[in-house]
Write a protein that binds this DNA or RNA. Structure first.
Lengths: 342, 342
DNA sequence: CTGTTAGCGCTTTCAT
DNA sequence: ATGAAAGCGCTAACAG
């Protein structure tokens, strides 16, 4: 600042106050640092009175443990990482929040890294985060399942919305909702379905296979129309092929894709559900805002996040393969109706 | 990769593999650990050949520095924190992304903490994050400016979308866009404006004062209608008072609030912009998806984030008070039109 | 119940 | 250019 000393001996004049250590406390209380450490961390195993005294001084000094210093002997850092393809995807909003709340409730720090939907970047993120964290949550992994499993040797990894052999994973249980969705469309009179899917996603295959099986079972025809990205643009892109398929009902990979289909249709003067019915996935907040409001399969995003984080925090469960399925629900709004008269 | 020397002495099968240290490298290369450290961090100050040898072995072993171990002697952790009121607010997403990309580009880890819009929780988050990070980005702070400044003595703090004396801060420069907005409404024939604001936000005052001054200058009447939260619900809440004000144009604190006003209006059978014109703020992605699509002031969210993070990473700038203003832009869509005939 | 004593893995003078 | 040694702040045996 304005403190300019010409002393060659004055190395720095920054407004940097030194942080108090347990040594400072020990000195003030007249105890050994290790006793201070115990008083702060395992107050049960120490004289109640001294513990109180230590804590009082610690509070007075505004003491906070240095996590790095603690991490060295213990090998645990108290921070966990969340790796996901795309932070701006609204699907992740509530998921992140679920994760964050659980981690904060447990006094853990949460680090976030975006992989941009690229397998290499995802791997790099995991590897470089590993030495800094106690566990990693990987959302919608783009890595080959075995690949992800292999990365979990040094640090526990929990997979969210994808499954990897040998790892704990939590996914939305879409089975019942898919049946419900198809039944809903069937009841409205639809017999020909188009599914707008996004290739290369683990979960996309699950959705498609389910839909395919259900459609076959109900005697409905169904086609998969691939699009490049799980975005509004991706959905808009697919519209011409949707129309060419002459399906009367469209199920989109997620709400963003559905929004894209809807927007492109509007741009062509087509009305939904008059021209075709449309079902989204996830129930992101904008699903209720569009016109028509989207019929969609509501994924328990928040629970997905909190549940996965809870597993990750549990030293037992985070090393034990498991598959948790969370229930989803069909929200019927205005984008589905009777098929157009032929 | 598949280069696995099959020494029977080096199996790796258990889930708990030990991470290699510089000692392992040193031993393999026949050098002192300190030399290894130098070879890895300041390759210039060492024999090029040995440096290369060290790096080769490090790569082979998959060595990664232990950030905690490095943090102890250096006092820097390589992680930065982002503290914001509400992760699920779409406004923050592009901002987070901007921050995340800059921090990843610099090899830094980003920690995220949500303060739920509560000053106490914000303070607590900052204090508890402090010992673990090299700097903190505080978005839309709810703390008294001096309070925030006081917290910045131990760790550099950069304020985003709020200003604090003595700290670097970066805000959206709303002046020109506000003028443009008011001119737009004025040109359409509006003379009576309602601003739906959210109290207790620093930035809310700036918006209101600007609008007030501009309205006065243009000879338009204006009222502020406070609502509790910057959310869809908050906007819906305000509708009765908006209608009672008999304003012909409504400017909302942000797009979420605008969405709320819009939804509540629809629920009453009112059409926008027939019943009243509506302007949002931020241009979150759903602004283009609603019906009518929202006229809104587009905030450079992403740049806000990347710019703030860039400052935070710069040891010079992160300690120097500054105020950076980023340009914003009025996006005219379908929610503004001529005032209803009287 | 509390003090002693080693480290955790890395950086960093200070020698050589 | 490299080695030796000390120490960052904390925890964890192991005494007493």
């Amino acid at each position: 600042m304005d403190h300019t000393s010409d002393e060659a001996t004055a190395p720095r004049a920054l407004p940097t106050t030194r942080r108090p250590t347990i040594y400072d406390i020990a000195e003030r209380v007249g105890l050994n640092p290790s006793t201070v450490s115990r008083a702060l961390n395992k107050p049960g195993r120490i004289n109640a009175e001294t513990a109180a005294r230590v804590q009082a001084v610690a509070a007075e000094l505004g003491f906070r443990v240095n996590p790095a210093a603690r991490a060295l002997p213990t090998g645990t850092t108290g921070t966990y990482a969340l790796v996901l393809p795309d932070i701006t995807n609204p699907v992740h909003f509530d998921l992140i929040r679920g994760v964050e709340q659980v981690s904060r409730a447990h006094g853990r720090t949460l680090a976030i890294s975006e992989s941009q939907g690229l397998a290499d970047q995802e791997r790099e993120a995991i590897i470089s985060l590993q030495p800094a964290v106690d566990g990693i949550l990987v959302v919608a992994s783009r890595l080959a399942p075995d690949d992800l499993t292999a990365l979990a040797t040094l640090t526990p990894v929990v997979a969210v919305n994808s499954v990897a052999p040998g790892l704990p994973s939590v996914v939305a249980s879409i089975e019942s909702a898919m049946s419900e969705t198809m039944a809903h469309l069937h009841a409205l009179g639809h017999r020909s379905i188009a599914y707008v899917g996004v290739q290369a996603f683990d979960i996309n295959h699950r959705k498609w296979e389910l839909l395919f099986a259900i459609a076959t079972g109900l005697g409905m025809s169904i086609v998969e129309i691939p699009t490049a990205a799980p975005t509004v643009a991706g959905g808009a892109d697919a519209l011409p092929r949707v129309l060419a398929s002459s399906a009367t009902a469209v199920i989109a990979y997620n709400d963003l894709v559905a929004h894209g289909v809807l927007q492109a249709a509007h741009a062509q003067g087509l009305q939904v559900p008059d021209a075709f019915s449309l079902v989204g996935f996830d129930d992101i907040f904008s699903a209720a805002l569009s016109t028509p409001a989207l019929t969609t399969v509501k994924t328990p995003l928040r629970e997905l996040g909190s549940s996965a984080m809870t597993i990750l925090l549990d030293p037992e469960r985070n090393r034990t393969p498991s598959l948790q399925r969370l229930p989803v629900e069909l929200i019927i709004r205005d984008s589905t109706g009777a098929p157009p008269a032929r």
